[in-house]
Design a protein around this nucleic acid. Structure first.
Lengths: 329, 329
DNA sequence: GGGGAGTTCTAAAACGTTTCAACGCAGATT
DNA sequence: AATCTGCGTTGAAACGTTTTAGAACTCCCC
């Protein structure tokens, strides 16, 4: 098997194992000539470092974990891309785990990450889950919250202001002449859904907001919400969906029933995923700096890992941006 | 820090470290009473096993790698779900890595997986890349190809017949009365794109197939392809897109130009992603058993890992299925 | 009460790296 | 010529598990 370790490399290059290790980890400490010799040996023997042994002895790995709620949602895919790019710049590997909306799966994934002794974890928590994260931190695993503001000052987080986002969305609908507005959302236990509604209500200043709460946030649920709205009668003249997947389903449901968008009902989504611009009636949406979100989160985490002394915890809050397209014209 | 290891647990429970290890790995070898005592100690101390130490000593990990081409494509998301479900059933963790279409990123990811000493790798190769995979196998890392038939009998693979898929798609268009058909595809160096074209040509029996080759396979590229078709004049009466992302972009591009789908041009995609059913003109597509693909691939891999003696290599080929929707009615 | 067969547990040796004190050796400084 | 400095290298200990041979017990039968 892979019987070629640092030891064999050392022998082949005529140096001690310690020197090979130095070539690997602190090449500047080794003279150019021996370094070249060792590197040649590594190449010739096809040596691949044993990460477990390295982690075991060094006490830490060059790995971070990323736990997302739904890898099927393009929003998280973009976040992931940002994280991976920055991590690989810095020489870290990313362990990606998907909780698929299940609390228990999230717990299990975090346990795996803890067993792997990752250096830190980026997580979009599925709900307020302080205990399991605190347990990680107790073990010396740094944690940065993604798309979720930290409540504590000793915790980094990167988020986007969802209240402002909700407010912007509904203000836009109002300025387009809408007056009877519906909010189609996922579970209101999800902070993002709740905050976006808060923002919507703020824009409405006391006028009523009809809320349709669905258990999931995919196109199917959006279409069902459309059917529900249609069957209940008393149609709204504008619909605000808590994400674009819901909005795309809503769009399809409305068009199927012969409702014209935006003429009969204006429609706005959230996240500005790629498909939002590509749908037949292109979707007005609230854009978030998704890729940046991941990238900055990773930056904070790796700073915390690499410079534990000087690291200053930050709670970063981005602002969302209105993207107007056909569905509200 | 995490100063609590197997040793502390042993002390706390009044047994030897070896016994704790047995409780963890071969609980049936330990008497019920001591097992209970050890398990209590584990819980009380909050012990988390150090995966690196375990891997180092045992010589293998409970981890497999999954390397996909584009995690942003819902097709791969579904495959991933299948893999993760089966792996976690079997007590394995999955290291997910995304090559984002880049050959060098794929290489780098495979190196990371090799360093982690994963038990095996599931990979959708970005092209015919025998060398790096052979190197993995030389190291004792099992490899199963996903969505790519193996050319060698000593290699497992799971794929879907793309030639049949292409043939089915174009036959369907022909039976709908189309005669001038265009094929919009990603790079023809990608086996899937090439095979689907082969199938299309087979259905055409020598009649010409106009091919538009784009460098990427996302909605943006699809829309550009539409613009290209429109600007070149001499419109086809049906378009077959090599995947649904291209088809959705094509749909939008056509509608924007006032072309009616399916009345002026019929349109068919490939993969049957969720968004295909949810688009404004719902998309006829070729469905693949995506989730199954991942699940069966994982099953083959873990069988190879856990029963190296009795394992029989298999090349499994699924058949695709035509899903008719509005875009070809 | 001696001895074989099970059962349950222990002790110590690995696994492949990293780390660190110590060493040798060149050139610079007294 | 003796001493100091600093660089480059070495050797061995350590990281936290798993694994193996075998020790310690219990039970049972002659």
């Amino acid at each position: 098997m892979s019987a070629v370790g640092i030891r064999q490399v050392a022998e082949h290059a005529g140096v001690s194992p310690g020197t090979v290790s130095n070539v690997l980890n602190r090449p500047e400490k080794v003279s150019a000539s021996t370094r070249a010799r060792v590197e040649a040996a590594i190449r010739e023997l096809g040596f691949v470092r044993h990460a477990s042994a390295s982690t075991l002895r060094a006490g830490h790995s060059k790995t971070i974990g990323l736990s997302v709620i739904d890898i099927g949602n393009p929003f998280f895919t973009d976040v992931t891309a940002g994280v991976e790019d920055l991590a690989s710049d810095r020489g870290y590997a990313v362990l990606l785990s998907n909780s698929a909306g299940s609390r228990s799966k999230e717990e299990r994934n975090l346990l795996v990450l803890a067993e792997q002794r990752v250096r830190g974890v980026l997580i979009t928590p599925s709900d307020e889950s302080p205990d399991s994260l605190d347990r990680l931190r107790d073990r010396g695993i740094n944690v940065v919250l993604v798309d979720h503001p930290a409540h504590r000052p000793d915790q980094c987080s990167v988020a986007v202001n969802d209240i402002v986002g909700g407010q912007t969305a509904v203000s836009h609908l109002l300025s387009g002449g809408a007056s009877r507005i519906a909010y189609v959302t996922g579970p209101l236990t999800i902070r993002q859904c709740m905050d976006r509604r808060l923002g919507a209500e703020r824009a409405l200043r006391g006028r009523p907001l009809r809320t349709v709460e669905m258990p999931t946030m995919n196109p199917r649920a959006g279409q069902q919400a459309a059917e529900k709205l249609l069957s209940e009668g008393d149609l709204p003249d504008a619909v605000f969906c808590a994400n674009d997947l819901l909005a795309l389903g809503m769009l399809r449901g409305l068009m199927h029933a012969g409702v014209r968008v935006p003429d009969d009902i204006a429609l706005i989504g959230y996240d500005d995923i790629d498909f939002a611009a590509a749908s037949a009636v292109s979707l007005t949406s609230i854009r978030q700096p998704t890729y940046q979100l991941g990238r900055v989160a990773a930056e904070l985490l790796l700073d915390e890992c690499d410079n534990p002394g000087t690291h200053a915890h930050q709670q970063i809050m981005f602002q969302p941006e209105l993207i107007v397209r056909e569905s509200t014209r």
